[in-house]
Computed example of a mutant assay.
Amino acid sequence: MAGDSSFDQDKNKLAEYETSSSGSYKSSRGCFNSKTGELMGRNFFSWIKLLSFFFIFCGVMSTLFGLCMGIFFQTLDYYIPKLKIEDSMIGSNPGLGYRPAGGLGFKTINGDYKGLSIYSSLIWFRHGGDGNFDRLRENLDKFLEEYEPGFFANQGASLTKCDFESKPKLTDESCEFNKEWLSDQGADIKCISAEHYGYYYGKPCILIKLNRIYDWFPDPYDINEVRNHSTMPLSLKNDIEKIYEEKCDDDPNKYCPYLNMVWLHCDGEDDPDKENLGLVSYTPFRGFPGYFFPYRNQRGYLSPVVMVQLKNPTPAVLMNLECTAWARNIRHNRLKREGLVHFELLMD
């Protein structure tokens, strides 16, 4: 039979190798047989066939993969995400961010602090002439670079001046945000780089931003909802009431554009933290104006930011601070950090 013949041939071949007087196969078993010219049990033409198969196989698979990726990328837009708001993993509940971030950074072998740490939410500094707040100032300067005029190419073509009474923007337009607005002209110590953002004087400034969510609109409270809100901080209610009395009509049922805001409130998490925090000011707004939204990846888009300045925090006391955003469609969850941001402050 054919099977027996093949077996006999292999058996004879093995016996021939073992009885070979030259011993060349034994000395390089599994590699090269000088008698038959085989390399690892295969002759030249066998290797050509095997390598040709693998090259053709890899070529076909690479071509199929490239075609699949090409078709897949044709379904994506470089500027508009396929999944938005509720359908995306980000969801529809924005969080807050803050600067300066990075905590103390990483300590080198020489004892110097270098870089930023994503695991630290502590703002720890020493104020005064021998202060160590340079890294905090640099972090704020770096973040605010994009707010400098002309940072983005052709930025002026898409930016427009907006206010609470302006008309809705076009899809490719975004509102101007001037870096100079972050400087409170009535404050003795201003939140600017020239004055070390208040860290030199023991009046630190913390920049708060609302995280971007594509095509998200805030749903602001009306004055009746603010007055009847059960969990909104009393100081925030009072500030909104003042804005309403100054800017809006007396009719509470009439729409007031100056309430088109995502309100911001920063305070200590617990009663001891609130006592040690002292007075807090917000510049330029008491939150984030609604006319900056939605974010649609516009060219040169600038997120609205708020400078929160602590006027007289208690030195040498570790404080747990929390800033919350307030609108109808913003929920607060400390565990998931939704609608808020937490950080610690220690001033020596």
Score class of each variant (00 low, 15 high):
Pro149Leu: 10
Ser117Ala: 12
Phe133Pro: 02
Arg137Val: 08
Glu138Cys: 05
Phe133Val: 06
Gly103His: 03
Phe143Lys: 05
Asn132Tyr: 02
Tyr113Ile: 07
Phe125Val: 00
Lys142Pro: 01
Ile123Pro: 00
Pro149Trp: 05
Thr108Lys: 11
Glu145Pro: 00
Pro149Phe: 04
Arg137Thr: 09
Leu136Thr: 02
Gly115Leu: 08
Gly102Pro: 00
Tyr113Trp: 15
Ala101Ile: 02
Gly102Asp: 04
Gly105Ser: 08
Trp124Gln: 12
Leu122Thr: 02
Glu146Ala: 12
Gly129Trp: 03
Leu136Glu: 11
Lys142Cys: 11
Tyr119Asn: 14
Tyr147Phe: 15
Ile109Met: 14
Asp134Trp: 03
Thr108Arg: 10
Ser120Ile: 00
Asn139Ser: 08
Asp141Glu: 14
Tyr119Cys: 14
Ala101Trp: 10
Phe133Asp: 12
Asn110Gly: 13
Thr108His: 07
Gly128Pro: 07
Ser117Val: 00
His127Arg: 06
His127Thr: 03
Trp124Gly: 14
Phe125Tyr: 15
Lys107Cys: 15
Tyr113Asn: 12
His127Met: 11
Pro149His: 09
Asp134Ile: 01
Tyr147Thr: 04
Gly102Asn: 03
Lys114Gln: 10
Phe133Thr: 09
Leu116Lys: 08
Ser117Met: 04
Arg137Asn: 08
Ser117Tyr: 02
Asn139Gln: 06
Asp134Glu: 09
Leu122Asp: 13
Ala101Thr: 02
Glu145Ser: 05
Leu144Tyr: 03
Gly131Met: 07
Glu138Gly: 04
Tyr113Val: 06
Gly131Ser: 10
Gly111Asn: 07
Asp141Gln: 13
Trp124Arg: 13
Leu136Ser: 06
Ile118Asp: 14
Ile109Leu: 15
Asn110Tyr: 08
Gly103Gln: 05
Asn139Trp: 01
Gly102Thr: 00
Phe125Asn: 03
Leu136Met: 11
Leu144Asn: 00
Asp112Thr: 07
Phe133Cys: 14
Leu144Asp: 03
Tyr119Asp: 13
Arg137Cys: 13
Ala101Gly: 07
Asn110Asp: 11
Gly103Cys: 09
Glu146Met: 09
Pro149Gln: 10
Ser117Asn: 07
Leu144Met: 05
Phe133Gly: 12
Ser120Val: 00
Phe143Tyr: 15
Thr108Asn: 13
Ile118Leu: 14
Lys107Asp: 15
Leu104Ser: 12
Leu136Ile: 04
Asp130Phe: 15
Gly111Val: 07
Asp112Arg: 08
Asp134Cys: 05
Arg126Gln: 10
Lys107Glu: 15
Leu136Gly: 05
Trp124Phe: 13
Phe143Ser: 03
Tyr119Gly: 15
Phe106Met: 13
Arg137Gln: 08
Phe143Gly: 01
Ile118Met: 14
Gly128Asp: 11
Leu104Ile: 04
Gly129His: 02
Asn139Pro: 02
Gly105Phe: 07
Lys107His: 14
Trp124Lys: 13
Gly103Pro: 00
Ile123Gly: 04
Ile123Cys: 07
Gly128Ser: 12
Leu122Ile: 05
Tyr113Thr: 04
Trp124Pro: 00
Asp130Met: 11
Ile109Gly: 10
Gly105Pro: 01
Tyr119Arg: 11
Asn132Arg: 01
Ser121Lys: 03
Gly115Ser: 07
